[in-house]
Design a protein around this nucleic acid. Sequence first.
DNA 1: CCGCTGACTTTACACTGTAAAAATTACTTG
DNA 2: CAAGTAATTTTTACAGTGTAAAGTCAGCGG
Lengths: 187, 187
Amino acid sequence: MQTKEKGRYHHGDLQTTLLRSARVLLEQDGIAALKLRAITRHAGVSATAAAPYFGNLAGLLSVLAAQGFDELTEAMSPPHAPLARDVGLAYIRFAIANPGLFTLMFRSDAINRTDAHLVAASERAFGRLAALPGPEKSGTTQAATMAARWGKAHGLAVLAIDGLLQPLTDNGDTCMTLDQLVSEAFR
Amino acid sequence: MQTKEKGRYHHGDLQTTLLRSARVLLEQDGIAALKLRAITRHAGVSATAAAPYFGNLAGLLSVLAAQGFDELTEAMSPPHAPLARDVGLAYIRFAIANPGLFTLMFRSDAINRTDAHLVAASERAFGRLAALPGPEKSGTTQAATMAARWGKAHGLAVLAIDGLLQPLTDNGDTCMTLDQLVSEAFR
DNA sequence: CCGCTGACTTTACACTGTAAAAATTACTTG
DNA sequence: CAAGTAATTTTTACAGTGTAAAGTCAGCGG
């Protein structure tokens, strides 16, 4: 269970160990498992060991969320020519692949939205979506097309994570997978 | 502060009083204020008075969420001929007008998603979005157009509540309001 | 060897939700 | 009207939670 080397009083890099423990718990049991005591217990340290590094629980989760935004940015960086559709689909697929992390990234009451690193990481990720050429609909602001694309991707991501798109996958006669549904819906 | 008539031991309809207190706290201070003790204190009763009626906190919040879905259904019921665009905009505007309630309605870890009343109320609301004729895009499943419309509306709603669309409203040279942005983005 | 600095732990406290028992009121039945 | 019963709320208690303050330990420079 404990990732800390046994017997050592000074841990070395407790910072990253705590973040990894939090990540493990998040992926295992979801956001509800992100208690400070559970994280430190998993890391093999005392309950208040995170305070010197992260201040409080929100501080730790903010760093975790910032890591999530960095990974999202990475996932939205296509190797070749990026199409708006591919980037949006990458957004949705990242959310489905990392439901707990993605949910945390938008839980304003669990993280510290004013944290500098988090703001930078999130703006980097949002920039990937914004910097793409839209379909050039006449009569629509560029901000509106950006909001439309982002909103569609984000909504499909959230609804998919919550399992609310499940009834739509086996609608009618044919049965489709979740990825097929969101791929077809996002265009 | 207390809505309970003073001196009476038996309250009469503590059920609705607790729900109203929860609603007030939710709109005043957001989801973080939905503690059981704060709700009962606001209602003027003891801390455990809600248990006989709602079982636990999740039970109370589930009823509150169900009320929210009923109000959303009402808001999405246009007086005359309903267009898909109008219903989706009503969805977004309800979320912006009731940010705390809307957020609660989709917090799966705070409410009891298997609650019968909540399931019924949410399906009633979701049915309003589904029962509309789509733009008849050739080559797309009806489930996909439904998911696309719902996802777009839901995503814009969530992003607007989180304040993430704010930077897009004053983009470039002109300055637009949030309602203008979502109205233009949702079509 | 001594003290010092940093890293972590121990202790303590104010909260939280909730289960069980007690107390209070209202109703109902004779 | 009186008394027993049922319904409703409170009191008490307990296991958790996050976090601030004080204490403890390891390693290092003098």
